[in-house]
Design a protein around this nucleic acid. Structure first.
Lengths: 132, 132
DNA sequence: GAAGTGTATTATTTGATATAATACACTTGA
DNA sequence: TCAAGTGTATTATATCAAATAATACACTTC
């Protein structure tokens, strides 16, 4: 587990997942939660690679996925910027939320849980002592 | 997408995931839902490999995980059997349900959803027209 | 003892992941 | 103008997980 600060952003890298996926998911989260502003510049490929001590190609991989998500736009010679479209970001969140929820429901149903049981279980876990 | 019947069991194999993981998750589901009875014999490594047209070693991999889950017991010269312990199976379901739910909550929170929003979203999706 | 079990070993292939080194195209600003 | 900083592309290499292949061994049942 390795933690690095890049500008005002905090990144945590380990070896449990592919590096580019870790960058991708953390960047998605930062943008989705508005911790990076709309239109704001994100760290350059080279800076990110240098700070995280990984290869620029690996960062590139993550950044290309971000653009496919519609979350960023690249400007040659300038850098990579979060999209100005709040709508784009909202759509991304809706898309991913739907994916996550469907996967969760499928997993639980494969264990034999019925829809009402799933809701009850989630509620119990959410409201339980200790939270989460 | 390839579908095979092995005895009374139905298996579906594709190339979206590692083969042993597909066997593992489908077998887990069959046992968890009681579609294979407690104490019942499951297909032999060789039979499964032959029917699914894959390598016995790959089936072995999945079966070893099943045993680590506490869902099966192996008897040399006889075969692999679902555990007789209903408690074991219940514990496995509780363990996995907790994992799935925690992962789901983490994913949603990373998108900026608050706990009450997550519950509301799940409920909306579950009770919506079309189901699932 | 033959047939069917799980198990172990060794070798090989394939694809995803990551690194490395380099070069090119574009933009900005001194 | 040109240096510095951007994204991009290419080629080569290394590593590891996943899967296959071929065999052999130990055990159980009939």
């Amino acid at each position: 587990m390795d933690e690095r600060r890049i500008g005002s952003l905090r990144f945590t890298i380990d070896f449990s997942q592919p590096l580019y996926e870790q960058i991708l998911s953390q960047m998605r989260s930062l943008i989705a939660k508005g911790e990076i502003d709309v239109g704001e510049k994100i760290p350059s490929v080279r800076e990110m690679a240098h700070e995280l001590k990984i290869n620029p190609n690996t960062v590139m991989h993550a950044y290309q996925e971000l653009e496919r998500d519609g979350l960023t736009e690249k400007r040659r010679g300038q850098g990579t910027f979060v999209t100005n479209s709040v709508t784009q970001i909202r759509h991304f969140k809706e898309r991913l939320a739907l994916d996550y929820t469907r996967e969760f429901l499928l997993n639980m149903r494969n264990l034999g849980f019925r829809p009402d049981e799933i809701e009850a279980y989630l509620e119990k876990l959410t409201h339980g002592k200790g939270g989460l």
